[in-house]
């Protein structure tokens, strides 16, 4: 019996799954790199390289894109194997709206569920009611309205969608600039204009007011989708991302262990070009990239 199936403490006054506890883990991951892995061996390589967490999945997005067909939650046996291989948090993906997959992942004791557009959506109208879970959720967003709708459904972390599996950073930059640019403009809005913003963003007025007052999302904002080099990580951190997800970019490259470590160093020292230069030397070939305009399927269009 795996120890994670047992409760940590039995005291009924210990409140689990509160917004603060869910968002708290995202705060702890800030300044770090979360890496996609498909085997326990890759998970070990990621942990050795300094990953703050791993995303356990059967195929990285580049392969999902190549293979086509319906992409679903990973085999629980694969997820458990990865949980046993590493001591850092393990995340896993559920299809958009597929709350039964999310229930399975919660029962496995994964540390974060990614309700992800990289998998084939299960519901064309509804995302998962994430408040109903103890496990925290991360969701993708392309703009501020989408981010706030996900927060209103209970997401405890937002990531840019980018365009997964392309090794092309352009879409992640577009999404980060859109979210952060609108936050900056919203902080300038007066009380009457905030109602206009709420209508335009299709987001609850309470969250719009919270963002206008605080000047940031109520949950951490991470970057995902297309990061392939240490300089990519530095770029998105300087734009305002608080941590990065690297999907295909590591294990589709020539020397995954070195590249993984280099991206970790660049994410920490993102404002220091001399360090980014040093860690970028001699990494071998990056993953082959894809032009976003030529794609048949844009994953970022999934979700609403």
């Amino acid at each position: 019996m795996a120890p994670e199936a047992q409760p940590g403490t039995a005291n009924p006054e210990h409140a689990r799954g509160t917004a603060r506890v869910k968002r708290g883990l995202a705060e702890m991951l800030r300044g770090g790199v979360i890496m996609d892995v498909v085997t326990a061996e890759q998970a070990k390589i990621a942990e050795d390289a300094g990953a703050v967490a791993v995303m356990a999945l059967e195929r990285v997005p580049a392969d999902i894109r190549r293979d086509g067909g319906v992409a679903r939650m990973s085999d629980p046996a694969l997820i458990e194997g990865i949980q046993q291989a590493v001591t850092i948090p393990v995340m896993a993906k559920a299809r958009i709206g597929h709350f039964a997959e999310a229930q399975v992942l919660e029962s496995l004791g994964v540390d974060y569920v990614d309700e992800s557009e990289v998998l084939t959506p299960a519901d064309e109208a509804h995302h998962i009611d994430k408040w109903a879970f103890t496990v925290p959720f991360v969701c993708g967003a392309t703009n501020l309205g989408e981010a706030l709708r996900r927060v209103s459904e209970g997401a405890a972390m937002i990531r840019s969608k980018g365009e997964a599996g392309t090794g092309n950073i352009v879409e992640a930059v577009r999404h980060l600039r859109s979210i952060l640019g609108d936050i900056r403009r919203l902080t300038q809005a007066d009380s009457a204009e905030r109602y206009g913003w709420a209508k335009e963003l299709r987001a609850p007025i309470g969250l719009v007011e919270e963002v206008a007052e605080a000047g940031c999302l109520p949950v951490p904002l991470f970057c995902a989708g297309g990061i392939a080099t240490p300089a990519d990580a530095s770029l998105v951190m300087q734009l305002g991302a608080e941590a990065v997800f690297v999907g295909s970019g590591i294990f589709k490259s020539e020397d995954p262990a070195r590249r993984a470590r280099a991206i970790v160093e660049a994410t920490t020292h993102f404002r220091d070009p001399a360090i980014v230069a040093k860690v970028s030397k001699g990494l071998g070939t990056a993953m082959p990239g894809l032009e976003v305009d030529g794609l048949e399927v844009k994953l970022a269009d999934r979700g609403w």
Binding site: P3, E4, Q6, P7, G8, T9, N11, E13, H14, A15, R16, G17, T18, R20, V21, G24, L25, T87, P89, E106, G109, V110, D111, Y112, T134, V135, P136
Partner: peptide, 15 residues
């Protein structure tokens, strides 16, 4: 002991 209180689903707050 690292993670001695368990995984994230066992994380909690209290007085």
């Amino acid at each position: 002991r690292r993670n001695g209180f368990g995984r994230q689903v066992q994380s909690f707050e209290c007085d």
